[in-house]
Design a protein around this nucleic acid. Sequence first.
DNA 1: ATTGACCTTCACGCAACGTAAAGCTGTAGA
DNA 2: TCTACAGCTTTACGTTGCGTGAAGGTCAAT
Lengths: 255, 255
Amino acid sequence: MEYTVQSLGKLAGVSTRTLRYYDEIELLKPARINSSGYRIYGQAEVDRLQQILFYRELGVNLERIKDIITAPTFHGADALKEHHVQLLNKRAQLDALIANVEKTIALNEGRISNMSNTEKFEGFKQQLIDENEQKYGKEIREKYGNEQVNKSNHKLKNMTQAEHDEVTRLGHEVTFALAEAFKTGDPAGEAAQKAAELHKQWLSYYWSEYSKEAHAGLAQMYVDDERFKAYYDDKQPGTAQFLRDAIRIYTGYRE
Amino acid sequence: MEYTVQSLGKLAGVSTRTLRYYDEIELLKPARINSSGYRIYGQAEVDRLQQILFYRELGVNLERIKDIITAPTFHGADALKEHHVQLLNKRAQLDALIANVEKTIALNEGRISNMSNTEKFEGFKQQLIDENEQKYGKEIREKYGNEQVNKSNHKLKNMTQAEHDEVTRLGHEVTFALAEAFKTGDPAGEAAQKAAELHKQWLSYYWSEYSKEAHAGLAQMYVDDERFKAYYDDKQPGTAQFLRDAIRIYTGYRE
DNA sequence: ATTGACCTTCACGCAACGTAAAGCTGTAGA
DNA sequence: TCTACAGCTTTACGTTGCGTGAAGGTCAAT
């Protein structure tokens, strides 16, 4: 089956402008251009568009979608499983929001007597910030100084929902890549270095400025600090140390 | 309890920039400005912000949110119930999307053998309907009752491609016949009555059950509502009113 | 008295399209 | 064969909802 802009748009529920735009930014090129200059799409493009829309639904920006699905390492089947996890997350968040609106209605009707202002905004954002601050904030401050953490908080505070989703997604990617790399056993190998790279990207959402030294220092902290260690070693003991080694090599700070 | 931009932002999970922007567009003004020019928000603003975020979550644009919640007819409690309905809809859509991704995974793994291209976009398409809902749904509901709109959505969702093509074709026919009839200037004439008849046929694709009263009511809405009026008056001003008159005669509801 | 985290007002930037404008193509009907 | 008219093209400016400095005032603590 072949599609023109209009028929594909109708099928997928997007505008023709959107398809032309996706062509323009090289996110989704038509299979071919016919003799009259019309864009003609085939089955491969239909499937690719589906993938694109999954990512878009999760709030990933188009530039990153392009990077992801054009990467040589991209594996459609894995991506779908990741979508599945993310969509379940999203549904959990939606459930929280529904609980919120139900509670607010109950409050209005006098069926319950009080509701804190904090509760009134539950479900709009994941409460990653507070959790992080409570669990690790204090000790990180003590050991590694206030400055970095403050800056980190500043960025987190001003993060949009989309960015927040993005950083969560990146976090999952790091975990996944790290688990894969761990199997190879080689922290200098390609897989491990890719994981370190992803970790840097993830980190740059928390730090206003990146430095290799700080990155390496953090990696050491992952090993020193029991909680961080537990987090990374959760499924595979030794992962925290493996990550530290990979990052040391990545940053060039080997001692 | 009083809040500054930052504390309110933190509470609600929005950036300080967002709050200043909402002030700028008069969507959410602070309760007062203190002696140093700082924005100070109180409880009323907290509650209003919650309402705003509910609407925003549902994809309503800020201009419309402003119109809705500043309208003299606005009733917070009713709005919350509407949010509840909409959020449940959204969850249903999300479930459809999750079903989609699960089915796609099953297809990839060979557990099922086929999946139509239409199915591959299920759960995305639903969004289009939601958007329509948000744009027009609420006002139509308010004015003309809930039932009709719900039924309309249901039919639209379950339409096959062929039916969809047919309804589109019929829509064009209506437009064409109406333009022809308009030239005669006579809403009781043969041409105009033919157009009204076509309009009824077209309508029956959206409504599960036709009634003359509802038909006449809709025709009146075409004149009352600016968006619909603009649609029909696009090429020939006065067409909306002409159609209403023709339908009134056709249905016998001359009031 | 100096940090440093608050706050303020401009003002430009950006993603992801929407929306004409101006013109070519393909085919169904007079 | 001519004429509509939907449907395709490119070009280009407009819009929404903020992000992101810059330049500077405020407040509490050191």
